[in-house]
Amino acid sequence: ENVVSAPMPGKVLRVLVRVGDRVRVGQGLLVLEAMKMENEIPSPRDGVVKRILVKEGEIVDTGQPLIELG
């Protein structure tokens, strides 16, 4: 699984990683606000951040690609 998608609609509050960062399974990639709750979106696997597909403040839909892992 190379693309991390939004599990719910919401607003991207914070991106916690940068392109080139090594991440571990379960590590927070970004914080999504949904229904006034902050939800940290975890990495599904170990890898390297290849691309960040959203910006802070952006509104996303369920299933929208957020981050690509390499």
Score class of each variant (00 low, 15 high):
G57Q: 10
S5C: 01
E68S: 00
V12T: 05
N2L: 07
V49C: 01
V31Q: 03
E1N: 00
P42Y: 13
R14F: 07
D61K: 07
G26C: 01
V3F: 02
G70E: 06
R24I: 04
G57K: 11
V19Q: 10
P9I: 09
V60C: 01
R24C: 01
G26S: 14
V12S: 13
G57T: 07
L66Q: 03
A6R: 04
I67P: 00
V17R: 03
L66C: 01
E56T: 07
L69S: 15
V23E: 06
R18K: 12
G26K: 14
V54D: 01
E58C: 01
V17K: 04
S43V: 09
I52A: 04
L13D: 06
G70M: 02
M37H: 12
V31D: 11
P44T: 15
G70W: 15
V12K: 00
P7I: 11
L32R: 02
K55G: 08
D46H: 03
G63V: 14
V31E: 14
P9T: 08
R18W: 05
L16Q: 02
V54T: 08
K55T: 09
R18G: 12
R18N: 07
E56C: 01
G10V: 15
K11T: 14
P7N: 06
K36M: 04
V17W: 13
R14L: 08
A6V: 06
P42R: 14
Q64F: 07
R14A: 08
E33C: 01
V60D: 00
I41Y: 14
S43D: 02
L13A: 12
E40W: 04
I59T: 04
V3W: 10
A34R: 05
G63A: 10
Q27K: 02
V48A: 08
V31F: 04
S5V: 10
V49P: 05
E38G: 10
E56R: 04
G70L: 05
E40A: 08
V60W: 03
V15C: 00
V3Y: 02
V17T: 10
E1S: 00
G57P: 04
P65N: 04
S5H: 09
L13K: 13
M8Y: 06
I52C: 01
R24D: 08
K11P: 11
P42V: 13
A34C: 00
E56V: 05
D21S: 02
R51C: 01
K55P: 09
V4G: 14
I59N: 08
V4Y: 12
V12N: 02
Q64A: 12
T62D: 12
K50E: 14
Q64D: 06
P65M: 07
L30I: 12
S43G: 07
G70S: 06
V60R: 05
L32K: 09
I59P: 10
V25R: 08
Q27I: 05
E40F: 13
L32T: 09
R24E: 06
K50C: 02
E58G: 05
L16C: 01
V60M: 10
M37T: 09
L66A: 03
R14Y: 10
P9N: 04
L29R: 00
V12P: 01
I59A: 11
R51D: 14
R22G: 02
E38N: 03
G26N: 06
E33R: 12
